[in-house]
Design a protein around this nucleic acid. Structure first.
Lengths: 125, 125
DNA sequence: TTTAAATGATACCGTTTAGTATCATAAGGA
DNA sequence: TCCTTATGATACTAAACGGTATCATTTAAA
């Protein structure tokens, strides 16, 4: 079990665990916004949204750039890539299993078309 | 903002937020195991590990199959794909932004090689 | 300079979470 | 049957979480 997992990954997954924060990310994917603008999209206080933005920032999913008295919140693509990379660890395994399943199905198919066995289950749990 | 996000996605992200659970997934990627076997890999009680497995199961990241008095815990690839799909929502945006950045850099380069302006910053924040 | 807007910071509250300890149940084996 | 093993289930605790209310600070603007 290698070190695919680290503090940055933890921060990102922690941030992604909350639906409001995922929603904020989707907002910011369309356009960067100030805190007030982001707040305008949610039924909660600005302080609550600000907390979410802080956690997103800690997870490096967004960057916050001061502009006068405002703070521009902007999506940080690389953090999402980190998560994507983490998931990729499993790609081998799941591709492998899916292709094994596919192969099993195929073989079952051809076996059917030759011998037509009767005890074949129609469904797999 | 479309419906890329739903209960299944929430369940998966919730499950992924904990480092022990991510670690369990990596274990199960290598081999399916009983609850006792999974527990053997961690410094906490079997009950605690069992709770993690339940949350992983609720997020449909693993499936649990009874085998006699044991329960075989097995990775469920499709849930990880759900998360991957969610991340893909951002691919357009981040690819787009990265390529926009690349383009800006390229244009800056060619502008330099023609006019060689003096006020050009050497670094970009 | 005075005022209003945008944000930062902190204290507080109810709920969820991660963990423990403990007891009950089910199934395999002597 | 009796004992042991694998698991289920519940009550409990400390910490983290999501949210509110409130006050301080910074900056734009009249």
């Amino acid at each position: 079990m290698q070190t695919i997992d680290n503090e940055a990954v933890q921060g990102a997954f922690r941030a992604l665990a909350d639906p409001t924060r995922r929603s904020i990310l989707q907002l910011l994917a369309e356009d960067e916004m100030t805190i007030a603008e982001v707040s305008g999209h949610f039924d909660m206080t600005r302080a609550a949204v600000k907390k979410h933005l802080t956690i997103l920032q800690e997870g490096e999913l967004i960057s916050v750039v001061p502009a006068g008295r405002e703070r521009i919140n902007r999506l940080e693509p690389m953090a999402l890539k980190r998560v994507s990379d983490w998931l990729n660890y499993f790609n081998n395994f799941w591709d492998q299993k899916l292709s094994a399943l596919q192969k099993a199905v195929d073989e079952e198919q051809s076996r059917k078309s030759i011998k037509r066995p009767s005890g074949t289950p129609s469904k797999e749990g």
